[in-house]
Design a protein around this nucleic acid. Sequence first.
DNA 1: AGCGGTCAAGTTGAT
DNA 2: ATCAACTTGACCGCT
Length: 298
Amino acid sequence: MIRLGLCCKFNEEPISFRTATATHVLKLTPKARAEKLAGICQDNAAALKRALDYCAANGIGSFRVNSQLLPLKTHPRAGYDLKDLPGGPGTVSVFKACGRQAKALGLRLTFHPDQFVLLSSPTASVTAASLLELEYQAEAAEWTGADVINIHGGGAYGDKPAALGRLAAALKRLSRRARARLALENDDRTYSPADLLPFCREHGLPFVYDVHHHRCLPDGLSVEQATSQALATWGGREPLFHLSSPREGWKGSDPRPHHDYIDIKDFPACWRKLNITVEVEAKAKETAIARLRRELGM
DNA sequence: AGCGGTCAAGTTGAT
DNA sequence: ATCAACTTGACCGCT
């Protein structure tokens, strides 16, 4: 029973999430700024509801929520609390309704904070900003019933064990609701599955296995070995994996950029019979998932 | 409506 | 030194 996951946005279906730039909103009067942000948050809550309906109707079992759901939420100067914005409490109610709706539809929701969220950084201000961002996403995850907040290991800074030590220390600063949702994913530059699996086992964190990243940054583990070890980190929970195909093929100059679609040959044979969520990182979004479903015979 | 410049944030490695 | 890549190009002011 494989659950396919859509990441953040749509290709053809007219459902979109809005955002805002700090430069712009900081030029507005406080009132105009609050109204602008309130309107975006409200629209995004409505878009999330429509996204869930679409997924449920089209055989998509999971949806990754964009980090800009509440744009600029943790910005040092433009940041805000949704409940303080005009209509904010109503928008919170819509997010909570999304959570009930997802549960009723059997949909899984996830979050994936962006590249600036780093718990291994030697720079205290970077860690502090990252913790703040994780707490924001944890609150939104609680509203919407998302069970995963997935981040990468971050940089190595020339000393990977030391960086992982800082990550371990930062974990202790997370709230219960953020810590309970946190997961770590291998990346295509620095942290391989072999780097993160022991850390995840030691700290009781689930490991999000990205097979495309693993193929870009091999570590001696086979796909089968990494899969098996990743599964074991999820306890009784449904494991979360990532899949994509290289834009210009595996023989291209850079295999990292993602293709519009998934080449079925990139789907690991050993995943076929598993009870897992596979987030599909393909530029063609729901169109790519529709094609993949057909090719998997789903 | 369409276009070009711009956008909060970190780190890495290719050029 | 610059730049693209990273889960996602979208926003904004101008014409």
